[in-house]
Design a protein around this nucleic acid. Structure first.
Lengths: 385, 385
DNA sequence: CCAACTATCAGAAACGTTTGTGATAATCAT
DNA sequence: ATGATTATCACAAACGTTTCTGATAGTTGG
């Protein structure tokens, strides 16, 4: 029925079970098990990338010697070393980082989880993170969650599956459960939160002055004469929303202004939410004379609406936003903002993480706050100081 | 002198060479070589991450069985499979992607090289690339070159050292030599260029309509009555600069307008180069009545300068730019642009790459052009059509 | 000249997977 | 009951490195 692939005889061949879905045979004559392979399974494979073993064979020496020569270890004669180096160039050898990492137990790679690269804050922070990483010999692997909790969790899994040495995390706006972070901690993988941190878990964090920035902006509005100050926040559960709201309230309290819930507007931080927020505020029985938006983009969207309605800025209505941006500077009127220096935040975060990777003593519960700066511009400045 | 670490005797121990800088000993009694270890070298290591072998030991079966059970292969009894699955949960097992990739010879990872995430075009393109990657089961590893040729080459090396399955490349503005790309090709690693492509090497490319976009913008200016049209480009050697310049010239030619070299300005595409360019143009003996900038950010910088000088836009001077952006839409006057749809470019690029990874038949020299769209706004529209 | 020492290298194990092959006990058919 | 067949698993090799251990030939010193 079936020729034995070893002795070519037909007589002794019997069927012998199924292996991975395929019929298996057994030749009683040569005492050999086999399966019929489909022919094209064994294509030549064209090994394109030279390995250490290739170098070793090429030179007629042991692979271990090649490795030591390449890595500049002792125990190698100058002659051998030179030969190995030359062979590496000739064969265009590149070390396989996968194998190296597997062997060494570390990847020299840092995983970065951010909600959205299209937000200028994260783009800039990311750029600075990458720069520091390069300078310190690390690679980064960036995942963005597109503001989705599910994707954020997926990304975290992926990164720990890739065995990154550490994690830099900024949560999506909809993230409310943090088991994925707990799991990272349980495996004692160093992690640092930045910007959108999670206050329910004890991790090192780098934040900016959310409270102070918010406070300063609102105080500035008050000093410019505003008394009815509206605030546009992100989602209500969102940690940053809460902190910034506290800053807002504190400033009002300092000047004896009562907090009116009607002046607090929560949003999903989507593209045209500023427009919606303005609609809301302007239709209040007693519209605000000052508006503070958590994202400066939203503040600008609101100003666009205000200009459409011939509202004078800043006289009739003043605007301030959180986070600086080229748009804030170039828009007319230019927007008063609290600059939270994304570059500094990124740098602080990765430096803290690298430190934690190196000294395994997991100095957690460090909280670094990056100093920000109030930038007063035309959208709110009425000449008072 | 030195106690043997095996038989604890002192008599038979002699020095025997140096190994990696450390004194080596030999015990003649137990015929054993050894080196003095520093104590803290052998710290417990606290293996935190469970492996397949851990699962196997825990269940008292072979590692291969565990692997097959986890991967849903045949040959596993339902009972065993269930036990393995449960153990995987109990021990919080995560497959080691490094080991998997090393074994399989592929990483399911795509390397992305971009010049700068802070440019809106690349941020948006990157977001769409990541989305497609997730949907198709790939990971991406992003490196940005910060517009530096050296870093770009470094990044390319890193990515091929990580054994990515394919490469998505957009060159830095200063890249003029392409050996690093040649090397990638030599190793037959699939590669796709997008946006800032390299026309000297035969690779699949995804571009947008640089020529047509440029042509349309300039033609639009002409139709609005402009006759002296200045153009602000990137570096002269930069491929995109050349193509867009050709579109500019073609439009002038179509309407019988002579090309004047004085109206061509090259820049480094830095932050305030728009301001410098405007200084240049406005100080010409015969200043332009229309300005076309290769980056819309630069166009807006020029408009800021123009407004400072009370120049009426678009009556006295009209502006257009390449690439759309929220800033273009919100700035006043809003900027006429050629939208080149970064999302589409990113999607097309990664789809093309994945196709090339799967069918190894390297269908190179494919050039896909993503259709763009002229968006006419206030900065140039004078009522004529 | 011989023991002690040195420089240089080879071999093997390990990192965590996947997969090809062989082995065993149980089941089936006659 | 016995030989054919099946289901299930174990074992080992392989991926490309690094590193530990041991082996060899050569060198030194008295």
């Amino acid at each position: 029925m079936q020729k034995c692939i070893k002795c070519n005889s037909v007589d002794g061949v019997i069927r012998s079970g199924f292996l991975r879905g395929k019929q298996r045979f057994f030749c009683k004559l040569c005492n050999f098990h086999f399966i019929l392979e489909n022919e094209n399974a064994r294509l030549p494979q064209k090994a394109t990338q030279a390995t250490i073993v290739d170098l070793a064979k090429h030179l007629g020496i042991a692979a271990s010697t090649v490795s030591r020569a390449l890595n500049g270890k002792a125990d190698i004669s100058p002659f051998t070393r030179k030969a190995v180096m030359q062979a590496a160039i000739d064969l265009d050898y590149r070390p396989n980082l996968l194998a190296q990492s597997l062997n060494k137990g570390k990847t020299n790679t840092i995983g970065v989880v951010i909600p959205n690269v299209e937000l200028p804050f994260f783009a800039t922070a990311l750029a600075s993170i990458q720069q520091v990483a390069i300078d310190t010999g690390y690679r980064i692997m960036v995942c963005h969650s597109s503001e989705s909790e599910a994707i954020e969790k997926l990304n975290t899994e992926t990164l720990i599956a890739c065995r990154v040495d550490g994690l830099l995390v900024s949560h999506s706006k909809e993230t409310t459960s943090f088991e994925h972070i707990q799991r990272v901690l349980a495996k004692s993988i160093p992690i640092v939160h930045f910007d959108r941190v999670c206050n329910e878990i004890d991790t090192p964090k780098v934040i900016h002055e959310d409270f102070k920035g918010s406070f300063d902006l609102v105080e500035h509005l008050i000093l410019q004469g505003c008394r009815k100050i509206g605030v546009m926040l992100g989602p209500q559960k969102f940690y940053i929303s809460q902190i910034r709201l506290e800053g807002y309230k504190a400033a009002l309290q300092k000047y004896g202004i009562e907090v009116d819930e009607k002046y607090i507007y929560y949003s999903e931080m989507n593209k045209n939410d500023g427009t919606k927020a303005f609609e809301y505020f302007i239709n209040l029985p007693n519209p605000p004379d000052g508006l503070f938006a958590m994202l400066s983009r939203n503040a600008i969207e609101m100003m666009v609406e205000a200009k459409k309605r011939q509202i004078k800025i800043p006289e009739d209505m003043a605007f301030v936003g959180f986070g600086d941006d080229i748009l804030c500077e170039l828009f007319e009127p230019s927007l008063t903002v609290f600059n939270h220096f994304p570059t500094k935040v990124g740098e602080a975060a990765i430096n803290l993480l690298i430190e934690n990777i190196k000294n395994k003593n997991t100095t957690s519960s460090t909280i670094q706050s990056v100093q920000g700066e109030l930038v007063i511009r035309d959208s709110s400045f009425k000449g008072k100081s």
